[in-house]
Amino acid sequence: MTDLTTHVLDTAHGIPAAGVRIRLFAAGAAGGPLAEAETDANGRAKIVPANGVAFDSGSYDLVFSVGAYFGAKGAAEPAPRFLDDVVIRFGLRAGAAHLHVPLLISPFGYTTYRGQ
């Protein structure tokens, strides 16, 4: 079974982004999220499908609620926020041992890459 993890870092404040809500969807599929998680105090989260089944090969969307995170931090940006949800669409091969998707965020930008 593929192990899917993420690490969210708040580059605006120089800290791990604790409490970021994350949802995982099959890209282009109707219906609700396959998994939901929230980053811990170190900005890390493990994404586990709610039904406990292995990931199929295909495209997936990780949706990070960064607007809510920065709003809770007291960011003074007026509504609507420049960034609300950050969506990362990625491909996954069934049977892959591990996939790590880090996200570095600020109220006005983000970057991601395939981590180890």
Rank of each mutant, 00 (worst) to 15 (best):
A35P: 05
N51S: 05
V48G: 03
I22P: 03
D84K: 06
G19V: 01
R21F: 02
V20N: 15
Q116R: 14
A50P: 04
T112S: 10
D85P: 01
G95N: 05
M1P: 04
F64L: 08
G14N: 13
T111D: 11
T39D: 05
L104F: 12
R93P: 00
G95M: 06
L9Q: 13
G58R: 05
A41W: 00
A41C: 00
F108R: 11
A30E: 15
L24V: 07
G14Q: 11
T112L: 02
Y110M: 05
H7K: 12
A76R: 15
L4P: 07
E38R: 15
A12I: 03
F70E: 10
T5D: 00
L4I: 12
P33M: 08
G43S: 06
P102S: 13
M1D: 13
T6F: 01
L92W: 12
Y60D: 04
A45Q: 10
A79C: 03
G115H: 14
T111G: 11
V48C: 02
P16W: 01
A18H: 10
R44D: 09
T2E: 03
R81D: 05
P78W: 12
A94N: 09
A18P: 02
G19E: 14
T112R: 09
K46I: 06
P16M: 02
P49R: 15
S59R: 15
Q116C: 02
E38I: 03
L103Q: 07
L24N: 07
G28T: 09
H98I: 01
V20M: 08
R23G: 02
L4A: 08
R93N: 08
H98Q: 13
F82V: 11
I88K: 13
G43D: 05
S57A: 13
D10C: 04
Y60H: 07
I105W: 12
P49S: 07
G95F: 09
G14H: 14
T11P: 02
T6E: 00
Y110L: 09
R81H: 12
F55G: 06
G52H: 14
V63I: 06
A30P: 07
P78N: 06
Y113L: 06
F108Y: 13
E77V: 01
A30I: 04
A12C: 06
G74I: 11
S57P: 00
A27N: 14
F70I: 04
L34G: 03
P78V: 01
A41M: 06
F70N: 11
L92I: 08
V66T: 15
H98M: 05
A79M: 12
A75P: 00
P107R: 10
N42W: 04
E36N: 07
I47F: 00
L24P: 03
G31H: 08
L83Q: 14
G58N: 10
G58I: 00
R23N: 12
L92E: 10
H13N: 09
R89D: 13
G14A: 09
R23H: 09
A94P: 01
A76Y: 06
A45M: 08
D56W: 00
T11Y: 06
D10P: 01
T6Y: 02
P78Q: 11
A17L: 00
K73N: 01
A29M: 10
V101H: 06
G91H: 14
A18N: 15
D85N: 11
A50T: 15
I47L: 10
F70H: 02
F64N: 09
